[in-house]
Structure formats: C-alpha cells, structure tokens
Amino acid sequence: MTQLDLASLITFIPAILRVTTPILLAGLGVLISSRAGVLNIGVEGMMLSGAFAGVVVSAATGSATLGFLAALVVGGALGAALSFAVHVLKSDLILSGIALNMAAAAGTTLLLFMLTGDKGMSGSLSSQVLPSLTIPVLAGIPVLGTLLSGHHILTYAAFLAVPGVGLFLMRTPMGLRLRAVGENPESAEIAGINVRRVQVGALVASGVFAGAAGAFLSMGYVSWFSQNMSAGRGFIALAAEVMGHGSATGTMFASLLLGIAEAASIALQGVGLPSELMQTVPYLVPVIALVVHARRRQRLLARA
C-alpha cells in the first residue's frame, strides 16, 4: 500500500464511522420498536426534532450535556405521542408516523424562523459541541490508533449499544416479552403480558435512540441546526433495520454499508461527476439492497 493509499484510507474510514453513527443509532431504535410489533415510521421526525431541541437548549444554557438530554427527552416524548395516537386514539400506525414526520419538518422550520428570523442555518443559535474521545490504549498504535481513536463520543456509544441492544432483546426477560408481543400479541396477552405497555415502552425507547441520532447531527457533525438537516437518514435507518434481518448485529453491518455509500458519495463529488448524481447514491443503495432482500425472501418462501 502506497503512502497515498494509506492517507486516503485514514481519511475515509473515520468519515464512514461519522456518517454511520446517526443511521446506526436510529436503526437500533427502529429495531426495538419493530420487534415489539410497532414499526417506528416517525423516526425521521424524531431525529429532526431531537437535533433542533439539542441546539436550542444547548444555546440557551451553554451546556452540551443539557442539550443532549433535551434531544433524548424530545425523542422519547414523540415516541410516547405516537403511541398515544395509535393505542388511545386508535389511528393507523403508518399514517401517524408519516404525520409526525411532516409535523416535525414544518414545526422545526417554523420555530427556527421564530427564534432567528431565518429558516436556513441558525447562526445566532450556535450550540455547544459534544466532545470527541481519545482512547489512550488505541491512540498509541500506529495507523490503527488514527482510525479508531479520537472519534465523537456518540460514535463509540452507538457501536457499544449494538451488543447491549442484542443482549437485551435475546437474553433478558423484558426482551423476551417484547419479542413475544411483536410475534404474537394475542398469545402474549393470554400469557399475562401487558401488550400496550410493552409497545409504549418500545416506541419511547425508539424515540430516545432517534433523539440521540438527531443530537449527533446538530451537535456532533456541526454546531447548529438547519432546516430538514436529517435529510432522510431516518428512512435510511428503517432500511438498515430491514436489511439487518431484525438483529442488532445485522443492523450494524447494514448501517455500515449505507454509511460507506454516503461517505463514498461525498468523496466522489470532487472527481468530475455531477454532484447531483453523487448525492443520490446514499438513497439508491438502500433501494437496491431492499430489492435484493425481497427477492431472496421470496425464493426462500417458494422453497418452503
């Protein structure tokens, strides 16, 4: 490997981890709700609202920690609101999630204009930035230390959450009840499990993960909020969960694949190809992957 190739690799891998982080966080949230039988279509709106809340609270208090906590609270609250619409008002889950996404896009734009007089970047609402983390053990290793140390603290949290979520779903009594509700809610009800309570908790937890993903976008990528800055990453997270076959590890690898696509589209914008074409890559890859996934599933069902 030449020095140029090594330098490109050292630059590209951290970029992959950076763009993968919000997709993975939101994808794990979608996984939790999906296994409970309540697919969180509103994850895009929860991310966007979390990003907005993080910047506003951080700017008002001067504390990145309080901004991050506000993003988690707002995400969880929207998860509870979606659950209220579905379980109490008896509205359709998919339509309610779509409505939440639309309301979040319009609401954050309106609030941003009210606070700053500008619906673009909120320059007057500059937030504190959540810190990066240097791991001494890794930092001293040539090349590997550069690749794996010094990333944003939420990047490490996202990847550490993968085994945590996997163990929760597969090895804990609460995770067992959650999966039982998702697979057969009628049987779970007969077994004495409170289906509504489990699904409410799953949607709230999903919203908290989405809020964390939004906080990373506005307090990790940059230190401000802009209109619709989630840019469809919530929908990409939905694709990551489907591509991951309902497992935390699978969701992680699918998120990495989609992160590679997004990082590559950014890197290739300077090679002479139309930037508009390159910007479609992160959205074309999940579509292609989902088509392949659907065809493979059809073959398996046909054999069965």
Rank of each mutant, 00 (worst) to 15 (best):
M1C: 00
M1N: 02
Q3L: 00
L6P: 02
L9P: 07
T11V: 02
T11D: 06
F12H: 09
I13A: 08
A15Y: 01
A15F: 01
I16G: 10
V19A: 05
I23D: 07
L24W: 09
A26C: 14
A26S: 13
A26Y: 06
L28M: 14
V30L: 01
S34Y: 15
R35W: 13
R35H: 11
I41A: 01
G42R: 10
G42M: 07
E44V: 05
M46V: 03
M47C: 05
M47D: 09
M47Q: 05
M47F: 11
L48F: 03
L48I: 04
A51I: 03
G54D: 09
A59I: 02
T61K: 12
S63G: 09
L66T: 15
A70C: 08
A70M: 06
A71D: 03
A71L: 00
L78E: 02
F84I: 13
F84H: 13
V88L: 15
V88W: 15
L89P: 14
S91N: 15
D92K: 05
L93Y: 09
L93M: 14
L93H: 15
L95Q: 13
S96D: 08
I98N: 08
A99Q: 08
A99R: 11
N101D: 11
N101C: 04
M102H: 07
M102W: 12
A103H: 03
A106V: 05
A106L: 00
F113P: 00
G117N: 09
G117L: 09
M121A: 12
G123A: 06
S127D: 02
I135G: 01
P136F: 03
V137H: 08
A139E: 09
G140N: 14
T146K: 14
L147G: 02
L148K: 03
G150F: 08
F159V: 11
F159S: 04
L160V: 12
A161Q: 10
G166Q: 11
L169S: 07
R171Q: 13
L176Y: 14
R177I: 07
R177N: 12
A180E: 14
E183G: 14
P185Q: 14
A188W: 11
E189S: 15
E189M: 13
A191R: 15
N194R: 15
N194C: 14
V195N: 12
R196D: 14
V198M: 06
A202I: 11
A202L: 09
A202P: 04
S206K: 06
V208W: 02
A213C: 03
S218D: 02
G220Q: 01
Y221L: 11
S226W: 04
S230A: 13
A231P: 09
I236E: 04
A239W: 01
A239N: 04
G244Y: 12
G246K: 07
G246W: 03
G246C: 04
A248P: 09
T249C: 04
M252R: 10
L258W: 08
G259N: 06
G259Q: 06
E262H: 11
S265C: 00
I266T: 10
L268A: 06
Q269A: 04
G270E: 04
G272M: 02
P274Y: 02
S275H: 10
S275W: 06
S275I: 09
M278V: 01
Q279H: 00
P282D: 03
V285P: 01
V285R: 00
A289D: 00
R296D: 00
R297H: 12
R299M: 12
R299V: 11
L301F: 10
L301D: 15
R303Q: 14
